[in-house]
């Protein structure tokens, strides 16, 4: 009680600055938060609605329901080839990410090696650096090495750009993992490989799967790296990108709606996996 008297009293604030109605301020905050979340989903909703709208221009008012744009997209051979190439690229790029990303995360977690700090930065670099720079520097590399641009170069580029996703997620999970379990397995006579397979792997599996799913979806719309590394074979993001140059077609809305909705589902699933028993993030 005496404490309160000893403390200098806060000077009075001008009336308009005093927010003394807890209910009113909480309500205002809630409305603001809801508006921002609405803002985040607005374009996605617009995209899906207009993919079913029977009009060649995306304008209000809506004209009526149609499957026309989906049928047109399914009949478009270039688009289907690009989609197929994208699936191929995304699958292999994800494999590259896992094959190099998981050992890298293990190394960061458990081993002190010379240049570790540098290595850590290098792995995270593509995440913070503009993708454009990653793309251009890879283009330079392939030119020096004498690689022709093809789907293979795109796969390597996506692998490099997306490996940081896998490393950060798996590393975060490893940091929470109780190493005693591995020691126990070791003491009970398991070989290192057995310990890895039966103790370590099950604990980081959901992080690996979750980050793999995210890499897969990101590979589907990676533009900055793809732009510099594609050869003759088109892949989906490049196809959409070059179609947009010639103007908007509702066909793109249809393809876009399919991609956005399916990646929404995949991402929700992978975020659930990554959060690991609802621990958040």
């Amino acid at each position: 009680m005496t404490l309160a008297i000893d403390t200098p009293r806060a000077p009075a604030w001008p009336r308009w600055l005093r927010i003394d109605h807890p209910r009113a301020s909480a309500k205002a905050l809630g409305i603001a938060a809801a508006a921002v979340i609405g803002f985040l989903y607005l374009p996605i909703v617009v995209l899906v609605i207009f993919s079913f709208n029977d009009n060649t221009v995306t304008t209000l008012p809506l004209r009526g329901f149609t499957w026309r744009w989906y049928q047109a997209a399914l009949a478009n051979q270039d688009l289907l080839t690009a989609l197929w190439n994208s699936i191929y690229v995304a699958t292999l790029a994800t494999l590259v990410c896992i094959l190099f990303g998981v050992p890298a995360a293990l190394a960061l977690d458990r081993i002190d090696f010379p240049g570790k700090a540098l290595f850590r930065r290098a792995v995270l670099l593509p995440l913070a650096l503009p993708g454009l720079i990653t793309g251009i520097s890879m283009l330079n590399l392939f030119r020096v090495v004498g690689f022709d641009l093809s789907l293979t170069t795109v796969i390597l580029g996506h692998g490099t750009a997306l490996i940081s996703v896998v490393v950060t997620q798996v590393f975060a999970r490893l940091q929470r993992f109780n190493r005693r379990l591995e020691e126990a397995s070791d003491d009970l006579g398991a070989t290192p490989l057995q310990t890895f397979r039966h103790v370590t792997l099950p604990n980081i599996r959901s992080a690996i799967v979750g980050s793999a799913l995210i890499s897969f979806t990101l590979s589907f719309d990676e533009i900055p790296v793809t732009f510099f590394l594609t050869g003759r074979d088109n892949i989906l993001p490049m196809y959409i990108y070059s179609t947009l140059r010639s103007g908007i077609t509702p066909e793109i809305n249809a393809v876009g709606a399919v991609i956005v909705v399916s990646s929404l589902i995949v991402i929700f699933f992978s975020v659930y996996l990554l959060s690991g028993q609802g621990e958040g993030r």
Binding site: Y41, I214, L218, D221, I223, P237, V260
Partner: peptide, 8 residues
């Protein structure tokens, strides 16, 4: 939304 198709 961060992970959902940036281009689109």
């Amino acid at each position: 939304p961060l992970w959902v198709s940036y281009l689109l």
